[in-house]
Design a protein around this nucleic acid. Structure first.
Lengths: 180, 180
DNA sequence: GACATTTGATTAGGCGCCATACTATGTACC
DNA sequence: GGTACATAGTATGGCGCCTAATCAAATGTC
C-alpha cells in the first residue's frame, strides 16, 4: 500500500491481527494509535542511541542540562522538581553521573541537610556541546514542515490529548458543576 | 493562546525555556516534538492506570493476550518473538504472571528443553474480557476522527517517521548503492 | 530546653526492560 | 559414538523509574 509505512512493534502487529480476526470495530483508530506509539518509540530509541556514546541516558542528560549555567549548584530536591521525577530517582541519576565524573555533591553550608550539586569541568563541557547538538537533532525530525503543517499536526495531537485522562482534567470549569 | 494545550512534562518545559533563552533556531519544531512525546506519555500512563486494577502491566497484558486461544500453550521463545521483547524479559513477565495465578509453566514432552506456557482459568477469563475493553479504550482516544483526518494524521506521522533512524533504513533500494 | 512536625536526602525493595553469561538438552558431522 | 554447535530457558546484574520507610537536621511550640 504505502511506500514508507511506519513499522509497528511486534506486539502491536499481533494485537491488530487479533482485532481483525475478531472484526472488532474501530480497527482504523487502533492502527492509528499504534502508529503514534511506534513513532514515539522510534524517537526514544534514537535519542538513547545518540546519548549512549557519552554514557548518558535521557534522564541523566536532563539533569546535566538543568545544572548547566548554575555555578552555585542546585539541590537534589530542586532537580527532582524541574526534571519531573521523584527524589529517589534523582538520587539514582546523581549516583550514576557522579560515578561518571560529570558532577560532584557538595555538602550545604547553611542548611546541613541540603546537598549542592555542581557540574565538573567535564560535565559542563558535555552539557554545553550536547544541548545544542541534541536540540538540533530533535528539530531535524520535523525538517521540512511548514508552519501550517506544524499547527495542523499540533491541532491533531491536541484533539487526541483531550481524550486522555490528563486532557479531561484540564477543563474542570464546565465538568466541575454540581451534578443534578 | 490555546484553550486546551497539551501540558508538557516538566523537563521539556525546562528544555524549551533554555532553548528560548538561547534563541536557538527551530524552537517550533522542538515544541512540536515535545507535544508528541507528551501525548504518548499520557496515553502510556492511562494504559497503566487501566491495567493496574488487574495487577497487570502492558507487557504482561500482551503476554496474556498472546496466550489467549492457544490451549496447547506457547513456549517462552515464541512469546518473546511475538511480543517483541528479549527472552530474559519474557522470563520476568512469566514469573510475575505465574505468581499472580494467570498461567502455569508445563514441562515439554518431546523436547525436554522446551516449556509450554498455558493460561489458567483466571488468565483466560481476564484475557477475554480485557482485550475487548482495552481495544475499545484505545479506539476511544480517536473518537470523532473522520477517515480523512485519520489519513491526514497518519501521513504526518509517517513524515516524521522517515526522519528517524528506523525510517531511514526502510528505503535501502536507493541508499544501498555502492559508494563511489 | 524538650517535644513533635516538617523537610532534605537516602535506602530498601519492586517492576519492566535490557545484555551477558551460564546450564541443559538436542542435533550434526566425522 | 564423541566432539562441536545450536537452541531453550534462566540467573545475574544493570538502568530508570516508582512507593514506602528511614535517618538527619531544622523549625515550631510549649
Amino acid at each position: 500500500m504505502y511506500r514508507h509505512m511506519i513499522s509497528l512493534e511486534q506486539k502491536y502487529d499481533s494485537l491488530l491481527q487479533e482485532a481483525e480476526r475478531r472484526s472488532q470495530p474501530g480497527i482504523a483508530n487502533l492502527r492509528l494509535c499504534f502508529e503514534l506509539l511506534a513513532l514515539t518509540a522510534a524517537i526514544d530509541r534514537d535519542c538513547a542511541v545518540r546519548l549512549a556514546p557519552y554514557n548518558l541516558s535521557e534522564g541523566k542528560f536532563v539533569v546535566l542540562f538543568l545544572l548547566h549555567g548554575q555555578p552555585q549548584g542546585l539541590s537534589p530536591h530542586e532537580l527532582a522538581d524541574r526534571a519531573g521525577v521523584t527524589r529517589p530517582t534523582i538520587t539514582g541519576l546523581l549516583d550514576g553521573l557522579e560515578r561518571g565524573g560529570f558532577l560532584a555533591r557538595h555538602s550545604g553550608l547553611q542548611d546541613r541537610r541540603k546537598v549542592s550539586i555542581r557540574l565538573s569541568e567535564k560535565g559542563d563541557a558535555t552539557a554545553r556541546s550536547l544541548f545544542a547538538e541534541h536540540t538540533r537533532w530533535i528539530g531535524s525530525l520535523f525538517e521540512g514542515f511548514s508552519a501550517e503543517e506544524r499547527s495542523q499536526f499540533s491541532a491533531l495531537l491536541q484533539r487526541v490529548w483531550r481524550s486522555t485522562d490528563a486532557g479531561k482534567m484540564e477543563s474542570p470549569a464546565i465538568a466541575g458543576e454540581p451534578a443534578p
